[in-house]
């Protein structure tokens, strides 16, 4: 018998395969043992998530997710924590590669903030970021609230919660108004859901990330009274209310996305209006949902205005939203589009 024996490493041990394809080649050639191949492939997975033959769902990279986050208006404290998180995960990966101890178990989070402050949007971006970083294989978001977890009879709740967690495996489970699980006291089935969540965090370590979201004070109380959950949550993201200027920026972005324009007067009046509202009422004033409703209503009102006026219309006319379209206190139908305050 002549020729290199499989397993001979002529290029020396410092050589490393550079791609998944190369790993497979080297296995074929006998330059890599299968177990080494598995380890290399695992290492690469964080860097080149989509490899190998056959169709694979596209795996948007971490950079893309980060860009999307950075483009969101405001939310500076949230962005800062996510930037840190990314650096942390990447360093843990590097440590893993060189055989150092790593700690990736604790990525469960609390998002506290008023409704309409971007929590769901950020959760969705975060899921994709963690996928890009190789932490979560699927990177999808499963949104849930009390009714999705809590059942109607004994045993039903544990079953519903388990099912939900199974759907979330490989991604992020986002529970909105999470504190409402503890709302009914000790006899309430919400307790059962909390216990099932805690158990799942043990049973499926690493396999999903739990995000508990809600109003800041309520969440604080909730975590303090449920140490089983509280102690397993490592990250706390605080979503501030939007400032009037940020709300105007959000409105501008929404309008642009829909291929409309705000007149300068409309922007200035909106800013003034939001300032005034903000002084009167904290809590819901910094609400992105409110601005979205305003913009959507303005688009409908503009259509009515133009139709009444009669054509032909210039391109500019078709695009322009005025303060009279936007004004929350003008027009007839505004009450139907609520402020986004839970009633």
């Amino acid at each position: 018998m002549s020729g290199p024996r499989p397993g001979d490493r002529r290029d020396g041990p410092s050589q490393r395969p550079a791609s998944a394809r190369e790993v497979l080649f080297w296995v074929e050639e006998g330059r890599l043992q299968p177990v080494e191949a598995l380890t290399h492939l695992r290492r690469m997975q964080a860097v080149h998530p989509a490899v190998g033959p056959g169709p694979r769902p596209s795996n948007p990279s971490a950079d893309q997710a980060m860009d999307e986050l950075e483009r969101l208006v405001g939310l500076e404290p949230v962005k800062a924590v996510v930037r840190e998180l990314r650096a942390f995960v990447e360093i843990q990966r590097r440590r893993q590669e060189v055989g150092l101890k790593t700690d990736l178990h604790t990525l469960h989070m609390v998002f506290s903030g008023s409704p309409g402050t971007g929590k769901t949007t950020v959760a969705r971006i975060l899921a994709r970021l963690l996928q890009g970083l190789g932490v979560l294989p699927r990177g999808h978001l499963v949104e849930a609230e009390r009714a999705d977890l809590v059942g109607e009879y004994i045993g039903h709740t544990a079953q519903k919660t388990r099912e939900l967690i199974r759907r979330a495996l490989g991604g992020v489970l986002f529970i909105d108004e999470a504190y409402s699980l503890a709302r009914g006291g000790d006899k309430d089935f919400g307790r059962e859901a909390i216990d099932a969540l805690v158990k799942a965090m043990e049973d499926y370590r690493d396999q999903f990330v739990l995000v508990l979201a809600g109003y800041p004070t309520e969440m604080e109380w909730f975590l303090a009274t449920n140490p089983g959950l509280g102690s397993r949550v490592a990250l706390h993201l605080v979503f501030p209310d939007y400032s009037p200027a940020e709300l105007v920026a959000i409105a501008r972005q929404m309008v642009r996305d829909r291929q409309y324009l705000l007149t300068r007067e409309a922007e200035a009046e909106l800013a003034r209006y939001l300032e005034r509202r903000g002084e009167q009422s904290r809590g819901w004033a910094g609400n992105g949902r409110f601005v979205r409703n305003l913009v959507e209503r303005a688009i409908r009102r503009q259509a009515v205005r133009l139709a009444q006026h009669g054509g032909p219309y210039s391109r500019e006319q078709l695009m322009t939203l005025t303060w009279s379209d936007l004004d929350p206190e003008g027009g007839g139908e505004w009450r139907r589009y609520s402020w986004g305050v839970p009633t």
């Binding site: 499989p6 397993g7 998944a20 790993v23 497979l24 080649f25 296995v27 074929e28 050639e29 006998g30 043992q33 299968p34 177990v35 191949a37 598995l38 492939l41 490899v51 190998g52 033959p53 056959g54 169709p55 694979r56």
Partner: peptide
């Protein structure tokens, strides 16, 4: 099956590599 250690037969190595390809997809 993914064997432990080095594999002597080329045909097995090739088949194992193909299997890993399917695993990745």
């Amino acid at each position: 099956g993914i064997p432990t250690g080095t594999v002597a037969e080329a045909a097995v190595r090739q088949a194992v590599a193909a299997g890993l390809g399917h695993l990745l997809g």
